[in-house]
């Protein structure tokens, strides 16, 4: 069985990715868009977590994303460590029409930086920008029956004084600049996305693919294969210490900053 595992590892790299964020910000929808290029207006809330896979080509390599899509409600929080353990990448999603969702996203980032794999690649994604885009894009969008969805979202976020920025939309509560600034400060990749129109979704995953230390993962998976076959933990242990030496100083700085 170790044969088959290492064989597949040579061709494609497996990347464990976890999605985190407040309830109803569109985590599952982002994944659904990425994995099967679909959009469902009223998706059932995720209970516990869902699991999907998608391959992604990066130059000569093929990455196989194993995506853990977690439940957003606060009380599922205690289960999250189960899903982000050993994750190499994380996408933390917030809703651009809901300021509190960014706060929650920040706390997720903080938790990941402290508790998760030390060299995890984190991306911050502000979803639902279709709701705040100027009328040009909404008129061009073909999905008129989903206007019901917009109304739905509007009720979920109580009326709030529109930010007096230059942007034409009234629903936006998180200015792009603010989130961008935070992401830069915390060392995160940053995107604004729309699972509904597909905008920015694939970009998240390709950018993550570029940033991920693929060689490390390859080494680690080989180490794992050896471990499960012979029960020898040494390979993994040495790998771990390498990683720590390289990455720790940066990470600990990040953790202190916020």
């Amino acid at each position: 069985m170790s044969d088959s595992a290492s064989g597949s590892a040579d061709k494609s790299v497996q990347v464990k990715l976890v999605l985190l964020g407040e309830a109803a910000v569109g985590k599952s929808s982002v994944v659904l868009r990425f994995v099967s290029n679909e959009f469902q207006a009223n998706k059932e809330p995720t209970i516990g977590a869902a699991f999907l896979t998608q391959k992604c080509r990066l130059e000569d390599r093929i990455l196989r994303y194993e995506i853990w899509d977690t439940a957003g409600q606060e009380r599922f929080h205690s289960l999250a460590p189960m899903y982000y353990r050993n994750a190499q990448a994380a996408v933390v999603v917030y809703d651009v029409t809901k300021a509190s969702s960014l706060e929650k996203a920040k706390s997720w980032v903080k938790e990941l930086q402290r508790q998760a794999n030390p060299n995890i690649v984190i991306a911050l994604a502000g979803n639902k920008i279709d709701l705040v885009q100027p009328s040009a894009s909404s008129s061009s969008s073909t999905s008129s029956p989903e206007s019901e969805d917009e109304a739905d979202d509007a009720t979920a976020t109580p009326d709030e004084a529109p930010p007096t920025g230059t942007e034409p939309e009234s629903l936006r509560q998180v200015p792009r600049e603010e989130a961008q600034a935070y992401a830069t400060e915390a060392g995160l990749l940053f995107f604004e996305t729309s699972a509904k129109t597909g905008e920015g979704v694939v970009e998240i995953f390709t950018e993550i693919a570029k940033k991920i230390p693929i060689e490390h993962i390859l080494a680690a998976t080989r180490g794992n294969g050896a471990r499960s076959a012979s029960g020898n933990p040494r390979a993994e242990g040495s790998q771990q210490s390498n990683v720590n030496l390289n990455e720790d100083p940066n990470k600990s700085k990040d953790a202190c900053n916020c």
Partner: peptide, 12 residues
């Protein structure tokens, strides 16, 4: 609030 978020997402 949480309930409102999920009303349209229950056996749709």
């Amino acid at each position: 609030e949480d309930i409102e978020k999920d009303l349209h997402r229950s056996l749709p």
